[in-house]
Simulated scan of single mutants.
Amino acid sequence: MTAAHENFAQWCSDELARVEAALNQWIVADAPANLGEPMRYAVLDGGKRLRPLLVLAAAQSAGPLGVPQAEAALRAGCAVELIHAYSLVHDDMPCMDNDVLRRGKPTVHVQFGEAQALLAGDALQALAFELLVPEGRDIPDVMQARLCRQLALAAGYNGMAGGQAIDLASVGKSLTQPQLQQMHKLKTGALLQSSVEMGATCAGITGAALAALRQYGAALGLAFQVIDDVLDVVADSATLGKTAGKDADNDKPTYVSLMGLDAARAYANDLLAEAQLALAGSGLAQPRALAALADMVVRRSH
Protein backbone atom coordinates (compact mmCIF):
# COMPACT_ATOMS: atom_id res chain seq x y z
CA MET A 1 0.00 0.00 0.00
CA THR A 2 1.40 3.40 -0.95
CA ALA A 3 2.07 6.13 1.58
CA ALA A 4 -0.61 8.23 -0.13
CA HIS A 5 -3.21 5.57 0.62
CA GLU A 6 -1.98 5.26 4.19
CA ASN A 7 -2.70 8.97 4.63
CA PHE A 8 -6.12 9.59 3.14
CA ALA A 9 -6.07 13.34 3.77
CA GLN A 10 -2.79 13.67 1.89
CA TRP A 11 -4.06 11.42 -0.90
CA CYS A 12 -7.16 13.59 -1.26
CA SER A 13 -5.11 16.78 -1.28
CA ASP A 14 -2.76 15.47 -3.96
CA GLU A 15 -5.48 14.07 -6.19
CA LEU A 16 -7.71 17.13 -5.84
CA ALA A 17 -4.81 19.33 -6.89
CA ARG A 18 -4.34 17.20 -10.02
CA VAL A 19 -8.05 17.34 -10.83
CA GLU A 20 -8.28 21.11 -10.33
CA ALA A 21 -5.23 21.75 -12.49
CA ALA A 22 -6.59 19.53 -15.26
CA LEU A 23 -10.05 21.11 -15.18
CA ASN A 24 -8.50 24.57 -15.23
CA GLN A 25 -6.46 23.60 -18.28
CA TRP A 26 -9.21 21.81 -20.21
CA ILE A 27 -12.08 24.28 -19.68
CA VAL A 28 -10.77 27.07 -21.86
CA ALA A 29 -11.68 30.69 -21.23
CA ASP A 30 -11.65 31.83 -24.87
CA ALA A 31 -14.82 30.11 -26.15
CA PRO A 32 -16.96 32.17 -28.55
CA ALA A 33 -19.09 35.00 -27.16
CA ASN A 34 -17.58 34.58 -23.67
CA LEU A 35 -19.15 31.12 -23.27
CA GLY A 36 -16.01 29.98 -21.48
CA GLU A 37 -16.81 32.26 -18.55
CA PRO A 38 -20.05 30.53 -17.45
CA MET A 39 -18.47 27.13 -18.20
CA ARG A 40 -15.57 27.84 -15.87
CA TYR A 41 -17.88 29.44 -13.29
CA ALA A 42 -20.00 26.27 -13.23
CA VAL A 43 -17.08 23.94 -12.59
CA LEU A 44 -14.10 25.66 -10.99
CA ASP A 45 -13.68 26.89 -7.41
CA GLY A 46 -16.34 24.75 -5.83
CA GLY A 47 -17.65 21.24 -5.30
CA LYS A 48 -16.43 18.22 -3.38
CA ARG A 49 -15.05 16.47 -6.51
CA LEU A 50 -16.35 13.18 -5.13
CA ARG A 51 -16.83 11.68 -8.58
CA PRO A 52 -13.26 12.28 -9.82
CA LEU A 53 -11.92 10.99 -6.52
CA LEU A 54 -13.98 7.82 -6.93
CA VAL A 55 -12.63 7.30 -10.45
CA LEU A 56 -9.04 7.76 -9.29
CA ALA A 57 -9.44 5.65 -6.14
CA ALA A 58 -11.04 2.81 -8.09
CA ALA A 59 -8.35 2.94 -10.77
CA GLN A 60 -5.62 2.79 -8.13
CA SER A 61 -7.31 0.12 -6.02
CA ALA A 62 -5.66 -2.78 -7.83
CA GLY A 63 -2.14 -1.33 -7.60
CA PRO A 64 0.13 1.15 -9.43
CA LEU A 65 -0.98 2.38 -12.85
CA GLY A 66 1.01 2.80 -16.02
CA VAL A 67 1.23 6.25 -17.59
CA PRO A 68 -1.58 5.73 -20.17
CA GLN A 69 -3.87 4.22 -17.53
CA ALA A 70 -3.18 7.07 -15.10
CA GLU A 71 -3.92 9.65 -17.78
CA ALA A 72 -7.11 7.83 -18.75
CA ALA A 73 -8.23 7.85 -15.11
CA LEU A 74 -7.58 11.58 -14.73
CA ARG A 75 -9.46 12.32 -17.94
CA ALA A 76 -12.32 10.04 -16.90
CA GLY A 77 -12.56 11.70 -13.50
CA CYS A 78 -12.70 15.15 -15.06
CA ALA A 79 -15.25 13.97 -17.63
CA VAL A 80 -17.59 12.70 -14.92
CA GLU A 81 -17.22 15.99 -13.05
CA LEU A 82 -18.16 17.92 -16.20
CA ILE A 83 -21.29 15.81 -16.62
CA HIS A 84 -22.18 16.40 -12.98
CA ALA A 85 -21.58 20.15 -13.31
CA TYR A 86 -23.65 20.47 -16.47
CA SER A 87 -26.52 18.62 -14.80
CA LEU A 88 -26.47 21.07 -11.89
CA VAL A 89 -26.52 24.04 -14.25
CA HIS A 90 -29.60 22.70 -16.03
CA ASP A 91 -31.32 21.39 -12.86
CA ASP A 92 -31.06 24.83 -11.23
CA MET A 93 -32.80 26.63 -14.10
CA PRO A 94 -36.35 28.00 -13.73
CA CYS A 95 -37.80 25.27 -15.97
CA MET A 96 -36.71 22.64 -13.43
CA ASP A 97 -35.75 23.32 -9.79
CA ASN A 98 -35.52 27.14 -10.13
CA ASP A 99 -32.73 27.52 -7.59
CA VAL A 100 -30.60 30.61 -6.99
CA LEU A 101 -27.70 29.22 -4.91
CA ARG A 102 -25.17 26.53 -5.75
CA ARG A 103 -21.76 25.85 -4.20
CA GLY A 104 -22.13 28.97 -2.09
CA LYS A 105 -22.60 31.38 -5.00
CA PRO A 106 -25.39 32.43 -7.40
CA THR A 107 -26.42 29.73 -9.84
CA VAL A 108 -25.19 30.04 -13.41
CA HIS A 109 -28.50 31.27 -14.87
CA VAL A 110 -28.72 33.93 -12.16
CA GLN A 111 -25.18 35.10 -12.87
CA PHE A 112 -25.16 34.88 -16.67
CA GLY A 113 -28.76 34.53 -17.84
CA GLU A 114 -30.75 31.48 -18.90
CA ALA A 115 -29.48 31.28 -22.48
CA GLN A 116 -25.81 31.31 -21.46
CA ALA A 117 -26.52 28.78 -18.71
CA LEU A 118 -28.22 26.42 -21.14
CA LEU A 119 -25.37 26.69 -23.64
CA ALA A 120 -22.70 26.35 -20.95
CA GLY A 121 -24.32 23.11 -19.80
CA ASP A 122 -24.49 21.83 -23.37
CA ALA A 123 -20.83 22.69 -23.94
CA LEU A 124 -19.70 21.02 -20.71
CA GLN A 125 -21.53 17.84 -21.67
CA ALA A 126 -19.81 17.75 -25.06
CA LEU A 127 -16.41 18.55 -23.53
CA ALA A 128 -16.76 15.57 -21.17
CA PHE A 129 -16.75 13.14 -24.09
CA GLU A 130 -14.03 15.08 -25.89
CA LEU A 131 -11.75 14.51 -22.89
CA LEU A 132 -12.28 10.76 -23.13
CA VAL A 133 -11.08 10.51 -26.75
CA PRO A 134 -7.86 12.56 -26.96
CA GLU A 135 -5.83 12.59 -30.14
CA GLY A 136 -2.23 11.50 -30.14
CA ARG A 137 -2.24 9.77 -26.76
CA ASP A 138 -1.36 6.19 -25.83
CA ILE A 139 -4.74 5.39 -24.28
CA PRO A 140 -6.06 2.28 -26.08
CA ASP A 141 -8.98 2.90 -28.43
CA VAL A 142 -11.01 0.12 -26.81
CA MET A 143 -10.61 1.77 -23.41
CA GLN A 144 -11.65 5.15 -24.79
CA ALA A 145 -14.77 3.67 -26.38
CA ARG A 146 -15.70 1.75 -23.23
CA LEU A 147 -15.33 4.86 -21.06
CA CYS A 148 -17.54 6.86 -23.44
CA ARG A 149 -20.22 4.18 -23.33
CA GLN A 150 -20.13 3.93 -19.53
CA LEU A 151 -20.48 7.68 -19.13
CA ALA A 152 -23.22 7.96 -21.74
CA LEU A 153 -25.26 5.21 -20.10
CA ALA A 154 -24.93 6.84 -16.67
CA ALA A 155 -25.89 10.29 -17.94
CA GLY A 156 -28.74 9.44 -20.31
CA TYR A 157 -32.39 8.48 -20.24
CA ASN A 158 -31.75 5.30 -18.25
CA GLY A 159 -29.47 7.14 -15.84
CA MET A 160 -29.17 10.69 -14.55
CA ALA A 161 -31.53 12.38 -17.04
CA GLY A 162 -34.17 9.70 -16.55
CA GLY A 163 -33.92 10.05 -12.79
CA GLN A 164 -34.40 13.81 -13.02
CA ALA A 165 -37.47 13.25 -15.18
CA ILE A 166 -38.93 10.95 -12.52
CA ASP A 167 -38.06 13.53 -9.85
CA LEU A 168 -39.91 16.30 -11.65
CA ALA A 169 -42.89 14.05 -12.27
CA SER A 170 -43.03 13.02 -8.59
CA VAL A 171 -43.53 16.44 -7.03
CA GLY A 172 -46.47 16.32 -4.67
CA LYS A 173 -46.82 12.54 -4.97
CA SER A 174 -46.26 9.79 -2.43
CA LEU A 175 -43.66 7.23 -3.47
CA THR A 176 -42.95 3.85 -1.94
CA GLN A 177 -39.38 3.15 -0.85
CA PRO A 178 -38.68 0.99 -3.94
CA GLN A 179 -39.98 3.80 -6.18
CA LEU A 180 -37.86 6.39 -4.38
CA GLN A 181 -34.81 4.13 -4.61
CA GLN A 182 -35.31 3.63 -8.33
CA MET A 183 -35.53 7.38 -8.88
CA HIS A 184 -32.30 8.03 -6.98
CA LYS A 185 -30.54 5.00 -8.42
CA LEU A 186 -30.90 6.79 -11.76
CA LYS A 187 -30.68 10.46 -10.79
CA THR A 188 -27.72 10.32 -8.40
CA GLY A 189 -26.50 6.76 -8.09
CA ALA A 190 -25.86 6.05 -11.77
CA LEU A 191 -23.14 8.67 -12.12
CA LEU A 192 -21.50 7.72 -8.81
CA GLN A 193 -21.52 4.03 -9.68
CA SER A 194 -20.22 4.83 -13.15
CA SER A 195 -17.34 6.77 -11.59
CA VAL A 196 -16.23 3.60 -9.82
CA GLU A 197 -16.70 1.43 -12.91
CA MET A 198 -14.84 3.87 -15.16
CA GLY A 199 -11.91 3.78 -12.75
CA ALA A 200 -12.00 0.00 -12.93
CA THR A 201 -11.97 0.19 -16.73
CA CYS A 202 -8.86 2.38 -16.66
CA ALA A 203 -7.06 -0.19 -14.50
CA GLY A 204 -8.33 -3.25 -16.38
CA ILE A 205 -10.13 -4.63 -13.31
CA THR A 206 -12.42 -7.56 -14.16
CA GLY A 207 -14.14 -10.57 -12.61
CA ALA A 208 -14.93 -10.76 -8.92
CA ALA A 209 -13.10 -7.52 -8.13
CA LEU A 210 -15.22 -5.63 -10.67
CA ALA A 211 -18.40 -7.18 -9.29
CA ALA A 212 -17.38 -6.03 -5.79
CA LEU A 213 -16.72 -2.51 -7.04
CA ARG A 214 -20.14 -2.42 -8.69
CA GLN A 215 -21.77 -3.47 -5.42
CA TYR A 216 -19.75 -0.84 -3.57
CA GLY A 217 -20.73 1.85 -6.09
CA ALA A 218 -24.43 1.00 -5.93
CA ALA A 219 -24.49 1.17 -2.12
CA LEU A 220 -22.45 4.36 -2.08
CA GLY A 221 -24.68 6.05 -4.64
CA LEU A 222 -27.80 5.35 -2.60
CA ALA A 223 -26.13 6.36 0.68
CA PHE A 224 -25.11 9.68 -0.87
CA GLN A 225 -28.72 10.54 -1.69
CA VAL A 226 -30.04 9.45 1.71
CA ILE A 227 -27.55 11.76 3.41
CA ASP A 228 -28.42 14.55 0.95
CA ASP A 229 -32.04 14.24 2.07
CA VAL A 230 -30.98 14.31 5.73
CA LEU A 231 -28.81 17.39 5.24
CA ASP A 232 -31.60 19.19 3.41
CA VAL A 233 -33.52 19.00 6.70
CA VAL A 234 -30.82 19.53 9.33
CA ALA A 235 -28.27 21.87 7.70
CA ASP A 236 -28.53 25.54 6.75
CA SER A 237 -27.93 27.09 3.34
CA ALA A 238 -24.55 28.56 4.32
CA THR A 239 -23.27 25.13 5.31
CA LEU A 240 -24.73 23.32 2.30
CA GLY A 241 -23.74 25.95 -0.25
CA LYS A 242 -27.21 25.54 -1.76
CA THR A 243 -30.75 26.30 -0.67
CA ALA A 244 -31.64 24.28 2.44
CA GLY A 245 -35.16 22.94 2.90
CA LYS A 246 -35.78 23.04 -0.82
CA ASP A 247 -37.17 19.51 -1.07
CA ALA A 248 -39.82 20.10 1.58
CA ASP A 249 -40.71 23.49 0.14
CA ASN A 250 -41.18 21.92 -3.29
CA ASP A 251 -43.16 18.98 -1.84
CA LYS A 252 -40.67 16.43 -3.17
CA PRO A 253 -40.58 12.88 -1.80
CA THR A 254 -37.38 12.15 0.17
CA TYR A 255 -36.03 9.42 2.43
CA VAL A 256 -36.68 11.67 5.43
CA SER A 257 -40.32 12.28 4.46
CA LEU A 258 -40.78 8.56 3.82
CA MET A 259 -38.82 7.03 6.72
CA GLY A 260 -38.26 9.77 9.25
CA LEU A 261 -34.94 11.43 10.14
CA ASP A 262 -33.51 8.80 12.49
CA ALA A 263 -34.47 5.89 10.24
CA ALA A 264 -32.94 7.64 7.23
CA ARG A 265 -29.67 8.10 9.09
CA ALA A 266 -29.70 4.46 10.16
CA TYR A 267 -30.36 3.38 6.57
CA ALA A 268 -27.36 5.42 5.36
CA ASN A 269 -25.18 3.63 7.92
CA ASP A 270 -26.50 0.26 6.71
CA LEU A 271 -25.58 1.20 3.15
CA LEU A 272 -22.12 2.28 4.29
CA ALA A 273 -21.64 -1.12 5.92
CA GLU A 274 -22.74 -2.79 2.67
CA ALA A 275 -20.21 -0.76 0.66
CA GLN A 276 -17.40 -1.54 3.10
CA LEU A 277 -18.28 -5.24 3.11
CA ALA A 278 -18.07 -5.34 -0.68
CA LEU A 279 -14.61 -3.79 -0.57
CA ALA A 280 -13.46 -6.17 2.14
CA GLY A 281 -14.29 -9.14 -0.07
CA SER A 282 -13.00 -7.63 -3.31
CA GLY A 283 -9.45 -8.96 -3.17
CA LEU A 284 -8.20 -5.53 -4.30
CA ALA A 285 -4.69 -4.58 -3.20
CA GLN A 286 -5.40 -0.95 -2.28
CA PRO A 287 -9.06 -0.34 -1.38
CA ARG A 288 -8.36 2.08 1.48
CA ALA A 289 -9.10 5.29 -0.43
CA LEU A 290 -12.44 3.88 -1.60
CA ALA A 291 -13.30 2.86 1.95
CA ALA A 292 -12.43 6.31 3.26
CA LEU A 293 -14.47 8.00 0.53
CA ALA A 294 -17.53 5.95 1.47
CA ASP A 295 -17.10 6.94 5.10
CA MET A 296 -16.71 10.58 4.05
CA VAL A 297 -19.97 10.45 2.07
CA VAL A 298 -22.02 9.24 5.04
CA ARG A 299 -20.28 11.37 7.70
CA ARG A 300 -20.27 14.63 5.74
CA SER A 301 -21.98 17.82 6.95
CA HIS A 302 -22.55 19.43 3.55
Rank of each mutant, 00 (worst) to 15 (best):
L56G: 01
V55I: 02
S87P: 07
M93R: 08
Q150Y: 00
L65C: 14
P52S: 05
L147R: 06
E71S: 15
A115E: 12
D45A: 13
D122E: 12
E37Y: 02
V133Y: 03
L74C: 14
A155I: 06
P52N: 01
A115T: 08
Q116G: 00
D91K: 07
D138T: 05
L101I: 12
I27Q: 08
P106K: 00
L147F: 07
V55H: 02
D141L: 13
M160A: 04
L35E: 02
D30V: 07
L35K: 01
L147G: 01
A123N: 08
H109I: 13
G163E: 11
A79N: 09
C148V: 12
A59H: 06
P52F: 02
N158Q: 15
S87Y: 12
L65S: 13
Q144K: 14
L65Y: 14
E37S: 04
Q69T: 03
A161G: 10
I139Y: 12
C148L: 06
L35Q: 04
N34D: 13
A123Y: 05
V55F: 03
D45W: 10
S61A: 14
G113I: 09
D30I: 08
D138M: 11
Y157H: 15
D97Y: 13
A70R: 10
A126F: 13
G156Y: 00
Q25W: 15
A62L: 05
V67R: 14
A126G: 09
I83T: 04
N98L: 12
Y41N: 02
Y41H: 03
Q150D: 03
G159L: 10
L124K: 06
Q125S: 14
R49E: 08
R102M: 04
A154H: 03
A128T: 11
Q111E: 03
Y157A: 15
Y41D: 02
R102E: 07
S61P: 03
A154I: 01
Q150R: 11
H109K: 04
C78W: 15
V43E: 02
N158T: 15
R51H: 07
A33P: 00
G163Q: 09
C148G: 00
G46D: 09
D97L: 13
G47S: 06
E130A: 14
G77S: 08
L153Y: 02
L50W: 00
R146L: 05
L88Q: 05
L56M: 13
D45Q: 14
A29Y: 06
L127W: 12
Q164F: 13
L54E: 01
E81G: 01
Q125W: 09
P38H: 07
E81F: 08
G162N: 10
P38E: 07
Q150M: 05
S61E: 10
I166T: 11
D30Q: 13
E71Q: 15
L35C: 07
L153P: 00
A123K: 01
A161H: 11
L44T: 04
G113C: 07
D141I: 02
D30T: 07
G104A: 01
F129P: 04
K48G: 01
A57H: 03
E71P: 04
L56F: 08
L151A: 00
V28Y: 10
A72N: 05
V110I: 15
H90T: 05
E37C: 04
H109M: 06
R137Y: 03
P68G: 13
